[in-house]
Design a protein around this nucleic acid. Sequence first.
DNA 1: CGAGGGACCTGGTTGC
DNA 2: TGCAACCAGGTCCCTC
Length: 269
Amino acid sequence: MPELPEVETTRRGIEPHLRGRRIADLILRDTRLRWPVSPEIANLAGREIVAVARRGKYLLLELDRGHLIWHLGMSGSLRILPRGTPPAPHEHVEIELDDGQALKFRDPRRFGALLYSAEDPLAHPLLASLGPEPLGDEFDAGYLYRRCRGRKVAIKNLLMNSHVVVGVGNIYASEALYLAGIRPGRAAGRISKPRAARLVDAVRAVLSDAIAHGGTTLRDFTRADGKPGYFRNELKVYGNTGACPACGAPVRQAVIGQRATYYCPACQT
DNA sequence: CGAGGGACCTGGTTGC
DNA sequence: TGCAACCAGGTCCCTC
């Protein structure tokens, strides 16, 4: 479900409610997430939440001692609700706060993950080898062009590879390639330097714009306050079974790397 | 090292 | 109406 804009929207939604609060209680209803949730996490009561950061699609809850690393997987969402609100279906984890509120994690498909890291979370094996942030300085035309050299994979798959750049999932990969005028199936190694530059700009633009709209709600994504994200209305090709908004040609649907892909056969080469 | 595919899950929608 | 098949915003891990 969530790509970078949805995770960032979640971060911004929960952070004001969590910063400076203490964990009153931590309830693990179902520990069968992507990896089993360590029972020691239930022992974090009393710790203070100092900050909520994000790295790629991972949320990092910095505690006064240690960190929680949270990934929403495909169907996970975090909401702030009053303590005592009856748990929704698939609400696997709840962090009760010392001010009467609670952070509730719902994840029907259980592809999400919740890990505890006593050390620097960025050194955790899952995070250590991640590529640069797409909205940071390191992600530029030279970098992307270099990473494309000699690669035969479709540029869309390369964009979605978190070891190349983090945060770009299936929706925004299609959207960014549309904006850049590049066919999603084009071999990464056949992307010219100017096209790499256009693609970097497109990725940044699409993600920033989506964050500004509170992310994209297709089905079950909800923000921390329960409202949907409105970027869905801005999507140009993803899920578009009609005409290209620029030239009117029928938007084409294909499967690339086992994922649904949308593009305009006229605008994208 | 790179490419490709399966695996992990549940629920909603589609089609016979 | 009933039920099987298919699809979904992620990403790790295995094989070749």
